[in-house]
């Protein structure tokens, strides 16, 4: 059997998403064309490959469209306050380090109102996986610009074009001390699945920025004709794989966001550090 045939065969086996979805909780609240459902599918496949049981996973979110994810999935789930998911998650993780904590948050939730928690969680290097769904807009409140809205882009609070520079979520995570930093998209679903699996397996704070599309608020405001056009824009104009970037001429890379694992290092993890502290306090260290 050739490699191609093997790959085809693998793909042909339907993945049982229902195993991880709570019965009776669908349909979800996401608009037609939203990328969040696609990302969820990649995430569930990654979780399945990780070998973690549903009881071992605690999914925590803040407020926003992506933050509704925990309501649909059959894990220990916690839907918290706007911006505060990481602080709640830190409490859960430190109290029960054996739980595998995955945080689902958005560009506004993580990088604006939750910015302080974001940088300090990365600094602590506590073993959690942070998924930042970045669709360049506040969707839940109806389309206001966010810290990842491109300069010049239109939103319901930037009718003359956004004048605020963007946060590069991955640069911010790396600079703050996260030991695993990656980027994926809702277009490159298999690549995203691999990236998320690596992020979950990584010991320490993992941050994965996921570029996805909000056709209703970002798309309509910025003259995208269709969801397909938005997806193609992510693929062709928006991003380039970190593996290919070195081989491409600079003009093909400039202005694009890199996809894949951008940064991975080892550094003492917070909960393990705390266990050592306990041993020391008890005179065993």
């Amino acid at each position: 059997m050739s490699a191609t045939t093997a790959a085809k065969k693998k793909l042909s086996v339907p993945f049982d998403y229902d195993k991880y979805l709570r019965p009776g909780k669908l349909p979800h609240i996401w608009c037609p064309g939203c990328g969040h459902g696609i990302v969820l599918k990649s995430l569930l496949r990654a979780i399945d490959k990780s070998g973690l049981t549903k009881d071992e996973i605690c999914m925590v979110s803040g407020i926003g469209c992506s933050s509704r994810t925990p309501g649909y999935v059959d894990f220990n789930t916690l839907h918290t306050l706007h911006g505060r998911a990481l602080a709640y998650a830190t409490g859960v993780k430190l109290a029960k380090p054996e739980l595998n904590v995955i945080i689902v948050t958005g560009d506004g939730d993580a990088l604006a109102i939750g910015g302080n928690h974001f940088i300090h969680t990365c600094r602590r290097n506590i073993d959690m996986t942070i998924l930042v769904y970045s669709n360049f807009i506040y969707g839940m409140t109806g389309g206001q610009f966010s810290p990842t809205t491109p300069v010049g882009a239109l939103s319901n609070t930037s009718r003359y074009g956004n004048i605020e520079p963007v946060f590069d979520c991955c640069d911010l995570a790396k600079a703050s001390g996260a030991t695993f930093v990656a980027r994926g998209t809702a277009y490159h679903t298999l690549e995203l699945e691999r990236t998320l699996l690596a992020a979950i397996k990584h010991k320490g704070t993992s941050v994965v920025e996921i570029i996805d599309e909000c056709p209703v608020y970002y798309g309509r405001n910025n003259k995208f004709k269709s969801v397909t056009q938005m997806m193609e824009d992510i693929e062709k104009n928006g991003t380039v794989s970190v593996k290919q970037a070195d081989k491409l001429p600079p003009e093909k890379v400039q202005g694009k966001l890199l996809r894949g694992i951008l940064h991975q290092v080892e550094r003492p993890e917070y909960c393990e550090g705390y266990e050592k502290l306990i041993a020391k306090a008890q005179g065993k260290g």
Binding site: R84, A87, Y88, T90, G91, V92
Partner: peptide
């Protein structure tokens, strides 16, 4: 745990309580 701010503190103790 000394959290990064007051808001994070109430959040962390709520999370920890839910973990038992």
């Amino acid at each position: 745990i000394q959290m990064e701010d007051e808001i994070a503190s109430i959040a962390a103790i709520t999370g920890a309580s839910l973990a038992g």
